[in-house]
Design a protein around this nucleic acid. Sequence first.
DNA 1: CCACATTCTTGCAGTATGCAACATTAGTGA
DNA 2: TCACTAATGTTGCATACTGCAAGAATGTGG
Lengths: 162, 162
Amino acid sequence: MNGEDQAAVISAVLAGSRLLVAIAARSLGAVGDRVTLPQFRMLVVLSGHGETKLVTMAELLDVNSSTAMRMADRLAAAGLVVREVNPMNRRESLMRLTDEGRRIVDQVTARRRDEIAAIVSRMSPAERQALISAMAAFNEAGGEPAAPTPEAGSHPLGWPDA
Amino acid sequence: MNGEDQAAVISAVLAGSRLLVAIAARSLGAVGDRVTLPQFRMLVVLSGHGETKLVTMAELLDVNSSTAMRMADRLAAAGLVVREVNPMNRRESLMRLTDEGRRIVDQVTARRRDEIAAIVSRMSPAERQALISAMAAFNEAGGEPAAPTPEAGSHPLGWPDA
DNA sequence: CCACATTCTTGCAGTATGCAACATTAGTGA
DNA sequence: TCACTAATGTTGCATACTGCAAGAATGTGG
């Protein structure tokens, strides 16, 4: 492999990484007063996963169950999620988004897509086409699924791109 | 603009964003026992910025000065940074990396570059070349500088890509 | 019924975060 | 020189995130 190509591509990817992370951080700013980043991640999981029990949520977020527990408590107190015992298994308590919680997820997701759209709209059609191919190849090489319709919450880890 | 292209490129970029964030998170795992993510961000800033006073650090990290204050305290207690009053201005106290602190930054940076390198090495030379161009165009359109040598800590916000 | 696993919950400790108040130091103008 | 203002660091207070460990409630298999 060409060493200069290697260095150039790593630099380019690192720079892109910084840009994307900054976008993700900004996109949360709109609701930053109402939810924290960890809380938003939980909302995203619920958005894509439907009713979820605590242990599953903790695994999806990669946090301790006690952490997920208290986050759920706070979101419930804020009226963004509701929790109720599973009638099928009284050990479990399922949580799901309220309308208000879903509104927040939609709001942030729309904002991030808008930001990305604004950037790619400043690229030429040829550049856009090249970006699709290049990112697809990169994602493929990175082991991520092609993600046919990567809507919010579809990621197994529940990362809201932040 | 072609609407399908638009949707495709946004999807591709979102997927790439998730992959890059996951890489950044993994790259910190190696030292996760010694420093937290916020602490690592502070180390990265010091790595690229040299001696830094508290208020400047708080601005670079986009946190309150009291938050930066206590983080600096903990890093100093851990032996990763040192703090001393600025002889030129006794109001200010400058902090800088110790050798141990710099070692941690280098370790994480190397790990992340290795992970990216591993991915791009699975791409064909043509794909690599296309990725360089496409990411450069994306970064350009996103307003980020071309970053001739984007080493750790060069980012003004001090984001360690996470 | 008993032993075991699963699930949720709570206690404890440490870290991150912001706001507000305060002390110290520097600069500035009368 | 003296007062006023600004910059800087520091601390108190409150809240949120985090993991570990222990316990309670529930289900499962024998």
